[in-house]
Amino acid sequence: MRVLAAILRREWRALFGSPQAGLLGGAFLLLAGALSSLNLQAYLRANAEIGLRMRSQGLAPAFLDFNESLLRQDLGALATLSLLLLPLLAMNLLAEERRSGTLELLMTSPVGEGRLVLGKWLAAWLYFLGLLALACLPKFVLAAYGSLHWPSFLVGLAGIALLAGAFLALSLFLSSLTRSPLLAAVGGFALLLLLWILGGFAKAGATGFPDGALAALSALGHLAPLLTGLLDTADLAYFLLLTALGLELARRRLQALRGGWR
């Protein structure tokens, strides 16, 4: 635990102290706020139009479901923004250690590769969860004006948290493959985008792969039910397995860098 705490402190210091991470976090929150505001405007406009139409037909005005039509849109927007943020958040985690030579010191310290990988992933994941919590603060204000369905909302948030965990683990692995953080970010983004849009290929049925297999691998396909508040163990297992895969690949990569020694 002591070692893990030391790695967490170090990574948070790097994240909170670096203008780059601050800029990323700020941009994430700004864009999340902007998208949320656009969603809210669209929601209000749609409600006004429906109200007008119903009144013109002599019916009592009705409103679109707050959870269905607004919060789900907001959660979807947060998930999409995460796709852009996570590779940038993870790009330095190991690539920078390799570039600066500190990896040699880390690998000759008593810290095992597993704990190193876990500590770095955990630090980035918790940092992201902090940003997610900040991005959700306005939702609590909105909740005062609508009936927030808490279980659905929390399942949706958990879905984004799981997605972030998996995507960070994969990005961490890519960060272990190179000394260039930029290359790690570009590779990470390409991989995550591929996972994101696999479902689209499945629908098109043009790849030659069984559609079921592509759909099963699609991150969006597994996230969508969670964003609607549907909790399915298959979706949870998908993200947990993807996280474990990314972390294990990163651990093995570090082991390979030291020639296979434990």
């Binding site: 790695i7 210091r13 030579g101 500190t102 008593p110």
Partner: peptide
Amino acid sequence: PEATPHYPDLSPEENLEFWGGLYG
């Protein structure tokens, strides 16, 4: 090591706190 790697954003004291933590 020859390149004397360290974390440039940390002070010597903070660098040493980090490495101390890794060594238990």
